[in-house]
Simulated scan of single mutants.
Amino acid sequence: MKLPEEFPYCFWHPDVPAEQTLRDLLERYLRKDLLRYQIGRACAAGGYTSLYLGLDLLPDVAIAEVARDNLASGQAIYESIIASPTRWNCMDDYNRCLHSPLRPGAQLNGDTCVRSMLDKTLPLGNCSCLILPRPTFDITEDWCLDADGTLPWARAVDPKAVQLFCEPLPADLPTVDKDLFILMAAWSGKSNATYGCADQA
């Protein structure tokens, strides 16, 4: 593989590669900056702390969000990024590339597609493709289609998201469906960080 389009953006879902596989990739394609961050992200998904620390990456919020989503084994990676005096926005999940230039001063703001989001698949089969919404993130480049998928409007709303509708948003958003906040801001006409349920009480 030589051209950028020959490399998959996400290779840690549905299965996380073995740590040795990631080391082999790193050795083979050492000069590819995007791949180093992708391997860092796979480390966060798999809990490979020593390999992650050896990559010597900027503390990227995308990797932090993946590690937080996998807190059982990714906590050390998450904490190392959160403890950094400056966090960076390096990976761009909307366009499946690295930001250019890389952006310092980033927060965890839900611009990362994490495993729990990828596990929420869209239906494939009897459903007409004309009504399937394009996913916000398509890092697996398969539209998250699955035979057992569920349409977004048929899913339960996360109680954490409902709670956040009624209070100021934190600097670091938890892992929630960010589209809900965008829709609520559009509906209420508010573009600030408070949606104002308390104002209506």
Results as ranks from 00 to 15, higher is better:
193 A>E: 08
38 Q>N: 08
200 Q>S: 07
175 T>K: 12
166 C>Q: 10
70 N>D: 08
97 C>A: 14
162 V>R: 15
179 D>P: 00
96 R>L: 09
5 E>N: 10
85 P>D: 02
34 L>E: 12
33 D>E: 15
59 P>G: 03
52 Y>E: 10
139 I>W: 07
171 A>P: 05
41 R>D: 04
145 L>M: 12
160 K>E: 15
77 I>S: 10
151 L>H: 13
193 A>V: 14
143 W>D: 09
120 K>Q: 14
99 H>C: 02
161 A>S: 12
103 R>H: 03
193 A>R: 12
134 R>M: 12
48 Y>N: 04
151 L>N: 05
164 L>T: 01
36 R>T: 11
15 D>Q: 03
102 L>S: 09
129 C>Q: 07
162 V>A: 10
23 R>I: 13
201 A>V: 07
176 V>Y: 04
172 D>Y: 01
125 G>D: 03
156 A>C: 09
143 W>Y: 11
68 R>P: 00
153 W>Y: 12
23 R>W: 13
186 A>F: 05
159 P>Q: 15
191 S>A: 06
28 R>P: 13
78 Y>V: 05
90 C>V: 03
195 Y>E: 05
169 L>W: 10
199 D>W: 10
137 F>P: 08
84 S>L: 01
103 R>V: 12
20 Q>A: 14
153 W>H: 15
193 A>N: 11
14 P>V: 07
148 D>I: 02
159 P>T: 15
113 C>I: 04
110 G>D: 09
124 L>A: 08
104 P>G: 03
